[in-house]
Structures are given as C-alpha cells and as structure tokens.
Design a protein around this nucleic acid. Structure first.
Lengths: 268, 268
DNA sequence: CAGTGGTCTAGACCACTGG
DNA sequence: CAGTGGTCTAGACCACTGC
C-alpha cells in the first residue's frame, strides 16, 4: 500500500470506527496526517463512553486492524494522547483511560504545596461542604461555561483544611444539566477527589484547565470561613476546567492561604 | 544488524560524537534505549557550545550516520528534545537550537497577562535597573544556586512597567563566576529579554524554571518602587532557573501587581 | 530542483506483566 | 508462556523551504 493517499480515503468509511459515517476525513481543510485522524477517532470513543476511565483500551495491534493502519501509526496517535494525559500507557499491561481516581494523580490540578514535604504527607485533606445550592448563572459564570446568563447552575462552597488548618476556600459553579442529582449529601459522603466523583457519577471527565491567579484581600465572610485576619493576603485562583472537545464544565474560584503553603509551577 | 545490543556498544566509542571517550554508555545502570543515549550526546553538544542558540544542528541523516543509528532513532531523540523546548524543528529548513531571543518565545517564562489582550499588545515593557551590585550569597540564595554561603553573587533589582504603570519589582541573584562582567550599564543598554542577553554575552541558556507563588503585602521600600499603597496585596513569585544538566543559574524574586494583570497557568 | 523534516509501513526483537 | 507496550531498522513517499 502506498501509504497515506489510499489510507486517507479508507479512513473516511471504516466499519467499526465511524458507525455514523461522520465526515471526519472529508472536512479536512488542507492536510491531516493519518495519525491525527486516528487520534480524533480514539478521542470520539473516549468521549462517547466506549472506553471508560481506568478501563483498558484495545491493544495497539487491535486498533491497527480496526482502523486499517500500521501499528506505528496507532502508536503515534496514542503517544500524543498519552502526552496530553488522556491515556496512560503501562508496559506489559496495556493502555488505559486516564482518571482522577488514581492515587498518583490525586491532586493533578491542585498546585498548592506545603513549605516542607508534599500534600500527601500532611495526611488527607478535611473537606467541609459549606453550601450546595441551585441558582442561576451570572453573566460572568455563563460566559465561562458557554451557557446563557440565567441558566440553572449548581453552586458549591467548601473549605479544605490541611492538618486541621483551614487553608482553601472554594466556590464552584457547575452547569445543572450534566450534573443533575448532585447534592451536598452526595458530596459530603464521598471520600476522594471531586473530579473522580464527577467521572463515576456523571460521566464528566475533566481533561485540562486554565487558571488566573491574583493576590487579594479577603472580605469578612471569607475571613470567617478561613479563620484568618482581614489583612492576610490570599491567592485568588480562578479556574475553568474543560472536558473533551474543550467544552467548559466547571468554574471554580479558590482562595488559598499561603503562609504555610505555596503555589508550585514549573516552567518548561 | 540486530539492533540494540550491538549498537549499544558501538555508541560507547563513536568517532565524532564522544572524542573524550566518556563512559556514557558504560555507566548505564539497568537499560537505556539507544535514543536516550543519542539524546545525551546531543545534549552534550548543546552544553559544550558545539551548536549555539538559534543555529541549525546537523540534519537527521547526518546525525544518524554520525551516531551510527537509523534516522528513526535520531528522530525520536530530537522529538523529545523539541518537546522539552531545547530544540525547534522547522519543516523544510532544519532543526535549530532554541533561544530566548525569538519574538515568539520572548516572554516564555513570564506568565503575567493583562486582563484584556496579551503583554505584547501593551507595547514593549519599560525596564528600569534600580540596582546592580556584587555581594555575598546568603544561606538561602546559596542553597538555591548550589554554591556556598558567602560566595560572590551579582544582585540586580529592577522595575518593569507596562503602559507606564510600574507592575513588577524583581530581585535577581546570579553566581558571579559565569556572569563576570555584568554591569548595570550593560543591562540598561540592552534592549531585549534578559535571558537572551545571558545567552549571547555569557553563553548561559536557561532551559527550565520552577516558581513558588504566594500572596504577600509589600514593605515600605517595595511600595515606593511600585508606587503602590502598603495594603495592596501582591503576588510573590520566587523562581529558580536552570541551565542544561539541571544546574541552577539564577534566583529571582518578583512582586507582581495583579489589579490589572493576572498570572496565567495552564493545567494539563 | 535538492535538501530538510514529516508520515507511513513492515517486520524483527526487547522489556515487562501476569497467569 | 502469551500478550502487551517499547525499541530499532530500512525504505518509500509526502510536504515544505529556498535557490
């Protein structure tokens, strides 16, 4: 086979890969290498739940025959998805759908670190749900979540303590539809990362996030919740978290006490 | 050729690659794939200045014959170095040593972003060197720079303004030996990123960095330099920057005014 | 047009996991 | 031991750059 030109058309109508006959390859504007197309197909299977978090996906050889490409091409697609933390490769065992439930990546999106040691060494965080209610999206929250202002959202407020010291005050806004059924009781009763609960209970997997960080002074209510004086500067961390396809699924505003912790960031 | 086993020994005594006959391959503890060894060899050539910032390195085919491996193996090594931002690939042209001087990556290590637009849209930053002196390393700075307390260091203090608003106050500590000859005049006269000057004048290329971020209140001197009230919370950004081989070469402490800017971070 | 990086294949073999 | 991902090769061809 003379590589791409033929395979390009074959990819457009695969049997198992693209049942709906979507125009994945047809709408290509200029030129898309085969492995990129495979990447999209794998992404679709992740998105539509064919392969669930922590489950193994088919072996490279299976995927190669399924998509009618060579193992090397599948490999390159999987490599990139693994680099984006969507898949996890384990030599000798297989390739698995990434999840927030594993111990290793427990705090993948939480960059707060104690001045000495790491977060795990302080023992598990104490989570206190302060509030969990259904409200309407403000203009600002609506814009971030790509919904309309006034649409129903769930708002959660909680305090995280490390070594019994209140350290993080968080407000979350979630679109009501995908998270229907989320209650304070459900959150309180769950022992584990919130994003892991989102995966198992609502099928929403957070894939990446963006944060805007500022230094602020707390208002009186925030002071009370964090048990801190009003002149203590805090880190304000505004996060928008995205699922597959860059769809925003959560807005979060955290206030971090940084006298015994710091926000860690690596520049590469 | 039956691949790795033979090539592994061949790699230990290449002609052009390892003139000193270093025991790169011999000291391998368990098992190191060929492309990792190639990576180390390329890294050495970057480090010893055989290939300088912004210059092209030999083509993949040349490297393959030089190291006596296949093009695919060189490719994988270069791929990883490109992913780590040490090399830049340009299709049709070649592979180049990354530099801080390019317009594109001008502010690669500066995550401060205006509330609307990006830093470049505000025009060039105004740099004011407040101080540049030779001192002795404190215990803290010495630890970060992996030198001895009391060793000579250069200390620089400067203020960056955007749209004429003082926004960043920075203190830098540099080991005196590699940066011998650095003066306030040299810094003031240079129009461009400081890390680009480090490359051209001192052959020190910053490869990666780590930052610890906190919210703080400024002291009176800092207030004066930033022209800000004493109750304005600021972002404290402590950075250690590393050259090749993870050698720390700079400690920097920035105070960021975050009322019209924010610190941007992407979580993946 | 020649030279560069980029894609794709086919096949061999290695390292690791678990039954 | 079979099955998985990981490495390496050799060769073909494609896309892009600049002369």
């Amino acid at each position: 086979m003379s590589a791409s030109s033929t395979a390009l058309t074959e990819i457009a109508t695969p049997s198992a890969a693209d049942p709906q006959g979507a125009a994945t390859a047809l709408q290509t504007p200029a030129f898309s290498p085969l492995y990129q197309q495979i990447k999209v197909l794998i992404l679709q299977s992740l998105q539509n739940g064919e392969w669930k978090p922590s489950a193994a996906i088919p072996s490279e050889i299976e995927l190669a025959t399924r998509y009618r490409v060579s193992q090397g091409t599948v490999r390159k697609a999987v490599d990139e998805l693994a680099a984006e933390n969507l898949l996890v490769r384990r030599q000798g065992k297989g390739t698995f759908v990434a999840t927030h439930a594993e111990r290793q990546v427990q705090y993948r999106f939480l960059n707060l670190v104690p001045d000495s040691g790491d977060l795990r060494s302080e023992g598990p965080a104490q989570r206190r749900i302060v509030d969990c209610k259904r409200t309407r999206a403000s203009a600002e929250v609506a814009r971030a979540l790509a919904i309309r202002a006034g649409d129903a959202v769930l708002q959660v407020r909680r305090v995280l303590s490390f070594a019994s010291v209140p350290t993080i005050l968080e407000d979350l806004w979630l679109p009501a539809t995908p998270f229907k059924g989320l209650t304070a009781e459900r959150l309180t009763g769950y022992d584990g990362p919130m994003y892991a609960l989102f995966e198992t209970e609502f099928g929403v997997r957070m894939v990446r996030a963006e944060e805007k960080i500022r230094a602020v002074l707390p208002d009186p209510e925030q002071c009370a919740l964090l048990q801190t004086p009003s002149n203590t500067p805090l880190l304000s961390v505004e996060r928008i978290a995205y699922t597959y396809n860059d769809a925003p699924m959560e807005v979060r505003r955290g206030l971090y006490l940084t006298d015994r912790h710091y926000y860690r960031n690596a520049l590469n």
